[in-house]
């Protein structure tokens, strides 16, 4: 279990209620609701799930089940600089796995986690449509191509000061 304790503000609760209402509070739209709510908050902490549960009249256990089933949903806030490594076919055959290993080692976290200082988070994604540049890494909005494990240190160094 990895959950961060958060206290929701009144306006956050109102926002979740508004999203639920836009789907007529229908339990069948749970995934759509979670998708939108995650879009709003960046992640789905327990407290947010509680508000969704109350509004859609779905048990908390069911919601947690859905959140943990789909890899798209996360209960961990993204880092300031989210690192995404493409593990699509082209990147994979050109060594994405080794690059990923290097990022894990350098950051000291697993895929789906954030560094304790909140600076970096690590995720995998499937194909960004730049297979010619494989293997591809994205940090925030910036894309890096033809990355080798040796480049990882330098990429991270770019974000050292902020």
């Amino acid at each position: 279990m990895s959950s961060i304790k958060v206290k929701l503000k009144e306006k956050d609760i109102a926002k979740i209620q508004e999203i639920c209402k836009s789907f007529d509070n229908k339990p069948g739209d749970l995934i759509n609701v979670l998708h939108k709510v995650q879009g709003e908050f960046g992640y789905l902490p327990a407290e947010v799930q509680e508000v969704v549960a109350e509004n859609l009249n779905v048990s908390l256990a069911k919601i947690y089940g859905v959140v943990t089933f789909y890899s798209f949903f996360t209960m961990i806030p993204k880092g300031k600089h989210p690192v995404s490594i493409c593990t699509g076919t082209a990147c994979y055959v050109r060594g994405a796995e080794k690059v990923l290993e290097e990022f894990k080692k350098e950051l000291g976290i697993k895929v789906g986690e954030s560094t304790p200082d909140g600076k970096f988070s690590l995720t995998c994604l499937r194909c960004v449509g730049a297979c010619g540049l494989a293997p591809v890494v994205q940090v925030g909005e910036k894309t890096y191509g033809r990355i080798a494990p040796d480049d990882v240190k330098n990429i991270l160094a770019e974000y050292e000061d902020n």
Binding site: M1, S59, L60, A61, Y64, G65, T68, F69
Partner: peptide, 16 residues
Amino acid sequence: LSAINRGFQSVVAPAF
């Protein structure tokens, strides 16, 4: 009780 996580990791458990 609900099934959580997926694949080999999935178990039936309470929320969180």
